[in-house]
Design a protein around this nucleic acid. Sequence first.
DNA 1: TAACAAGTGCTAATCATTTGCAACTAAGTT
DNA 2: AACTTAGTTGCAAATGATTAGCACTTGTTA
Lengths: 169, 169
Amino acid sequence: MLPYTANTLKAELNSRGWRLTPQRETILHVFQNLPHGNHLSADELHHVLSQRGETISLSTIYRSVKLMARMGILRELELAEGHKHYELNRPQHHHHHMVCVQCNKTVEFKNDSILKQSLKQVDRDGLQLIDCQLTVTTICPEAIRMGWPSELPSNWSCTRAISETAAEE
Amino acid sequence: MLPYTANTLKAELNSRGWRLTPQRETILHVFQNLPHGNHLSADELHHVLSQRGETISLSTIYRSVKLMARMGILRELELAEGHKHYELNRPQHHHHHMVCVQCNKTVEFKNDSILKQSLKQVDRDGLQLIDCQLTVTTICPEAIRMGWPSELPSNWSCTRAISETAAEE
DNA sequence: TAACAAGTGCTAATCATTTGCAACTAAGTT
DNA sequence: AACTTAGTTGCAAATGATTAGCACTTGTTA
Ligand SMILES: [Mn+2]
Ligand SMILES: [Mn+2]
Ligand SMILES: [Zn+2]
Ligand SMILES: [Zn+2]
């Protein structure tokens, strides 16, 4: 799973009857040069490109990003309400996300045991694994300081949940 | 975290200035009586209720289900493209999901180590955990028989990804 | 270089979810 | 038990992300 170059991307596309276009190459480059830990929505990607003067229509962005996700080049993430985010799929840097439900701030973390557990589970059921994403919804310190959440029930506590779970078995 | 009754639900709602309505009680009942492993979208819930003659407007369903998710009564899941699913949140039966990208068939599985890993990670960053959901995207045996996926790159392999990851550290 | 299917950029749909608003009703208060 | 007030509902209209239709353009292959 080496990083894609224009050539390997072309080969990969052509082998399935698809084509390497300047747009697809550009989009790949954006993701390849995106600092680790960053994620882009279709709209954000559109803006990034506009600022560079390399305008690609929003339709094409949606189409490309979806295609590249299905190809395994990008990972499609549900980090925020209402729209998807994408990042380069680097199996060597497989990671997961913690997201604050209040401000949507996202922190990545690595944890190989999660992929291992997933693989074990998938094998048990005769499935083939494509990806696994652990999304940890959290409240960040800032949100806590702001008095959030007022909406969680008074008896709600993640640590309580986990200790009950541990106790019962 | 005992299961909600009409009374405890009312207490929980009232303590935050909200009200117990017949609609909310009905919706809770539907989820409490839903067989384990089932999940409902807003629209599916609407249909289920219609069939029973207990019509609740789709708006109210969306509003209720979102509120109950924020309260920790329901879990909001991303199991299919384009719409959310909900299930009763039972911390004692905390579990994760494997979803086939082809047919969206969903299989639940328990794995306590995942919650433990999440909790550890969250503590490390000073965050408060609300929930953690591991979504394993897979291809089911039926889909494999059907020749899917034709879209994954030829060098794509989850096991390769995991072995590379393991090798590198 | 020709042939043609795939891809792009418009614009116009879709479709899940949200919102505005008037009527209704829980919950707390006399 | 009636009164008050703010939360809730149901309807219809709006929103907003994503998709589809289509004429035009362009990679790819022979
Ligand atoms: Mn990431
Ligand atoms: Mn479930
Ligand atoms: Zn936050
Ligand atoms: Zn399947």
